[in-house]
Amino acid sequence: MTTTSPAIEVSGLTRSYGDHTVLDGVDLTVPEGTVYALLGPNGAGKTTIVNILSTLLAPGDGEIRVAGFDVRREPAEVRAAIGVTGQFSAIDELLTGAENLRLMADLAHLDRARATAAVTLMLARFDLARAADRRAQTYSGGEKRRLDLAMTLIARPRLIFLDEPTAGLDPRSRRDLWAIVRELVSDGVTVLLTTQYLEEADQLADRVGVLDGGRLVAEGTAAQLKRRVPGGHVSVQFIDAAGLAATAAAHPEATVDAEALTLQVPSDGSIAGLRRVLDGLDDDGVAALTVSSADLDDVFLALTGRTAEAPAAEGIPA
């Protein structure tokens, strides 16, 4: 246990719009220097949590402390400690990249020399040096997102909120952004991010909270969550239907895909379990074999009864 107070402490956060309850008693603790991922589909309440924690939205009920300050009584202190990159681009499209960064440096009250140095540093670090003097409205999606994040980070906040930071990005930009987040974490920055992408939470977060209908339905490390769900399996592809039928008979719990000649046998990931499957196989009858552990998709399905609504067009290859 550390002696410092957590970066974020939320207990019993409830928020409703009229009769519609958006958040229903959320408890959340994020220790300093860690990454917490709020995972959930659209409408689960992820953005509402970020907006309340970043003082954009009045909280309903509950105790909320951010960077040690009460969001209701000490909003200015909270704002001084945080950086926010929201779901929608928060850049000034009429200004150039360099002017946007300069704007943030000036608002952070850096003196002239330090502001100039910080702008140059950020442009280089976020690979925007060549785009520095172009208007932001001409930027690509990835460039806009990098500029957005650079603007958040130029004042060196110790706690940052990233609301769906990679939504709409191509796979390469997504990986670039993950690298930036990892770099931040190695500098000791605390990150709260929201995502619909299960892989993203798995890749980045120390702890994952699964949000559904305004409630945290599960919380833990990605590994802990996966252990709670029987989603792992061994997948065997046969060269003919006869081999498939023979093995399927020995594993009544398995799922048969006759068209693909594939048998999916549930597995807890242990060697003994894998051996049981292998023992029944004929060496020459198998075309391919893969072992998969449960992913967070399985977790989501098991916890909420639904699959996560990851946009198909933007799906990431596993």
């Binding site: 704002r79 926010v84 681009s89 928060a90 000034d92 952070a108 603007m151």
Partner: peptide, 13 residues
């Protein structure tokens, strides 16, 4: 209507 106004609101200015 632009996102940068929301950013200003989260800053200590």
């Amino acid at each position: 209507t632009t996102g940068i106004i929301a950013r200003f609101r989260t800053m200590d200015i």
